[in-house]
Write a protein that binds this DNA or RNA. Structure first.
Lengths: 134, 134
DNA sequence: CAATTATATACGCCTTGACAGATACGTCCA
DNA sequence: TGGACGTATCTGTCAAGGCGTATATAATTG
């Protein structure tokens, strides 16, 4: 449990768009195009916020062909991990965040109905991704 | 559990000075002069950060004569409360924060040795303050 | 009341972040 | 090799935050 900049973690969490992104990533590795579609925000905006989260080391990116997958990375620092997990849990209780998730799962069931998602790779449960990383 | 701006809470927590202040306030109502002395920062700086925490509704101030006491106010919103409490708990495990606290308690034992604190009111355990509020 | 003490706010400066829009980069496919 | 597509970054603009310094407010004391 070495020194860790908690203020930096909180700065990363101090934006609604980033909280929505984290909520969508909770438990899965998600392709950028889904974020753009589900949050209805411009692609550069999504990308910038993902870059911010990456800089703060709470998400990691993985390229697969032309798609980028993002996933949450729980910090090594035990305290930071507790705060992040608690935050994810609180997000899960939020109505608006649940609405995002429900649009998300709906989109996953019929991606071909959304032009932007037709042909895009589905999110991958993190358990399954674990193998890829090894 | 109505709508609550979590991002605003995180913004309030996204500064080291404010985290140190919260850590010092944990469990007690503290006079501003103690913050200034223990953190070794300028009085206006401390005051501005306290104002920020007040704006974010996670601390409350009480005037008593010429002194101002600050204390933590746990948000009504259950999720926010969990995050704040978890944060305070994590702060308590941090070496630097513990060092602040140990200088704090030492100062309280012999305030007259520190010019700035000579005659200043000691911090008050929150349990005791509860009565005042009623 | 004037002076003093405790605290808050205003001001000016600089840095950072958020945004939209344009563009660059990386990968795949024809 | 040149699109086409998915994604990232650059540019410029604006607002907000952090700091030090100076000053204002509030309560107390002489």
């Amino acid at each position: 449990m070495k020194k860790y900049d908690l203020a930096l973690l909180f700065a990363a969490l101090a934006d609604r768009t980033r909280l929505r992104l984290l909520n969508l990533m909770n438990g899965k590795e998600v392709c950028v195009c889904y974020f753009v579609e589900i949050l209805g925000q411009s692609q550069p905006k999504i990308s910038r916020h993902l870059a911010y989260l990456r800089r703060a080391s709470i998400v990691a990116a993985r390229r697969e062909g032309k798609w980028m997958y993002y996933r949450i990375v729980v910090p090594k620092h035990a305290g930071a991990a507790r705060i992040l997990n608690e935050t994810l849990s609180v997000l899960g209780e939020d109505k608006a965040m649940q609405a995002d998730l429900s649009r998300f799962t709906k989109a996953c069931c019929a991606p071909q109905k959304l032009p932007a998602l037709d042909g895009a790779p589905l999110p991958i449960p993190v358990e399954a991704v674990g193998c890829v990383a090894c």
